[in-house]
Amino acid sequence: MLEIRNLQVSISTTEILKGINLNVQKGEVHAVMGPNGSGKSTLANVLAGRPEYEVTHGAALFEGQDLLGMTPDERARRGIFLAFQYPVELPGVRNRQFLKAALDSVREHRGEDELSVRDFNKIFDEAVQSLEIDPELIKRSVNEGFSGGEKKRSEMLQLSLLNPKLALLDETDSGLDIDALKTISKGINRHRNKHNAILLITHYQRILNYITPNQVHVLIDGSIAMSGGEELAKELEAKGYDWVKEDIRS
């Protein structure tokens, strides 16, 4: 589904990603872990098409198509979803209105009919309920006045409605208490199926207690230093990232 070849990325002349190779197949969950500043978020953001990053070398293919030449909205319509580390507030833009516009354009791209307001409201309300989101809160403008945890739930609401093929979860677990983490993990597991894929970017091993990855990659200083199965995450939690760094040196 996603194939990244020797991807090199800079932001204002500073090189952040120094040649990433990664293959994610349908039905897989890949966890990307790493210390602060290792380039984890850059990887997610560049795949979603944030304009401030410059790809200096390499390629990223999504279902065999060149991803890097597409606008951010085109990527989303094709089935890529970035759950933001810091979701943006949209004053005056209501959640329903925003999600209806997003879903309409995604469905149109898939060749599906636009949902009626009634059908939309039905799936919207169901998703709100299952993610344990306060129905009063979600009547407000997108993310406006939401707490950190509420913003992350709202991202999961968008994920579950848009139902993307590839979800890029950028530190969705950061800043969550244990109950919120469980709810959000439940949402992710419900979304997970054999037709879609997830790139789960995290600083902590904690979320992997609830979501079992197929592969774990350790990103250090812009390169994947180590890859392995789910047990690698536990080892990292026990030994810390310095252990990987020492391991590379030796």
Partner: peptide, 25 residues
């Protein structure tokens, strides 16, 4: 810009995103 990018990352084209933001304002 970040609001615009956020909306586009959900599949909303730039023009529609702009009008949603202006209408929101």
């Amino acid at each position: 810009e970040d609001a615009l990018m956020y909306m586009r990352s959900r599949g909303i084209d730039k023009h529609t995103a702009m009008s949603l933001l202006v209408n929101g304002f």
